[in-house]
């Protein structure tokens, strides 16, 4: 998928948007997919990329991974900058 502004795909941007609107949320891939209306495989890939960038925190267990918005202020500033540039 082609990257847009801030090096983010449209899906990555929408996932970040969701977490910025609901900063207390902790969601599985299935949950995120149901909120964004996207296919789970694509959401998983996007969430992993965002987690590698440390913009999402991934709580991994053997059965489930929960994603949530980073609490790191520097990362949060980067996210707001990228989303604001849209």
């Amino acid at each position: 998928m082609a990257s847009g502004k801030g090096g983010l795909t449209d899906l990555e941007r929408r996932i970040l948007q969701f977490f910025c609107e609901h900063p207390a949320a902790v969601e599985t891939v299935r949950g995120i997919a149901s909120w964004t209306g996207d296919e789970q495989g694509a959401v998983q890939e996007a969430a992993q990329i965002l987690s590698k960038r440390k913009w999402l925190t991934a709580d991994e267990t053997s059965v489930v991974t929960g994603y949530s918005l980073t609490r790191d202020e520097r990362c949060l500033a980067q996210i707001h900058e990228v989303l604001g540039a849209a």
């Binding site: 207390a24 969601e27 489930v64």
Partner: peptide
């Protein structure tokens, strides 16, 4: 979203 979060936390 809050309900779903509680459910995810329960699973985690």
């Amino acid at each position: 979203v809050a309900l779903s979060t509680i459910h995810t936390i329960h699973r985690l």
